[in-house]
């Protein structure tokens, strides 16, 4: 059993879903961590859930990225702990500089609330390590600002370093413009930091973790992190990437 920390900001609104999946569906310990918390001691993995933290004032995730708890998240990430940002949590990680790039409003000029397919582009993260390269997952999205953007040189560096973790694709796994729900550059749906332990994605794995909800592909991400943590606890794990 692992202990997950779910960070809750004012106006987070997917935190209960994350707690439900991790505690009730998967049977792990969950600590609900308030945005003013100064420590993540005793937690094995951290999830930044979706929502509209601090009302998304200024820019989505901008104010939350400067919240007191982010000092602890930063330290946790630096120490190699697994951090997952979902939707608004992804935006917060981008604004905090823990992940590369920025979010723009959807190019379709609409809030997108639908189910998408994403293709696993990297298995070099705790959340994808037990998945297959090219595996197709079906998960819902619900966002107005999910149009991932990185300037040319940064995008090239991210691609080169294998930091694109998920891309929007069709049901067959083909990365096509039609499968892109929001205009994200190169269909990017999720990225990781250079070390691989911090991952952000726009789709909601916690809303796709039970068959009753139409897909349980999302739980694979949490289960993968648990397996990665178990392996690490047995001290058998090699660093995810050469640099750490």
């Amino acid at each position: 059993m692992m202990r997950f920390g779910i960070v809750i900001f004012p106006a987070s609104n997917c935190d209960r879903d994350c707690v439900h999946v991790l505690r009730t569906v998967l049977g792990h310990d969950v600590e609900e961590v308030w945005h003013e918390a100064g420590s993540l001691d005793g937690v094995d993995a951290v999830v930044l859930p979706g929502g509209f933290a601090y009302g998304d004032y200024l820019r989505a995730g901008a104010v939350a990225a400067r919240a007191p708890v982010m000092t602890a998240v930063r330290a946790f990430a630096r120490a190699g702990g697994p951090v997952l940002g979902v939707c608004n949590g992804f935006q917060i990680l981008l604004e905090a500089g823990l992940l590369p790039g920025a979010m723009l409003r959807n190019d379709v000029l609409r809030f997108r609330c639908t189910t998408v397919h994403v293709r696993v582009e990297s298995t070099q993260t705790p959340f994808t390590r037990s998945l297959r390269d090219g595996q197709v997952l079906r998960m819902p999205i619900a966002h107005g600002e999910g149009n991932y953007f990185a300037p040319g040189a940064m995008l090239a560096a991210i691609e080169e370093a294998g930091q694109v973790v998920f891309r929007y694709c069709d049901a067959q796994g083909r990365v096509l413009p039609d499968a892109n729900p929001n205009g994200s550059i190169r269909n990017v749906a999720g990225v990781c930091n250079p070390a691989g332990n911090v991952v952000g994605l726009m789709p909601h794995p916690e809303r796709a973790s039970e068959e009753l909800l139409g897909s349980d592909d999302g739980r694979l991400l949490f289960e993968s992190a648990v397996m990665w943590l178990e392996t690490r606890k047995r001290s058998l794990v090699t660093p995810l990437r050469g640099s750490r």
Binding site: L104, R105, L109, F149
Partner: peptide
């Protein structure tokens, strides 16, 4: 303001 060349979906909607 958004940098020149960065897609401004909000601006497009207002333009419409």
């Amino acid at each position: 303001t958004l940098k020149p060349g960065v897609l401004d979906a909000q601006g497009q909607a207002v333009h419409q």
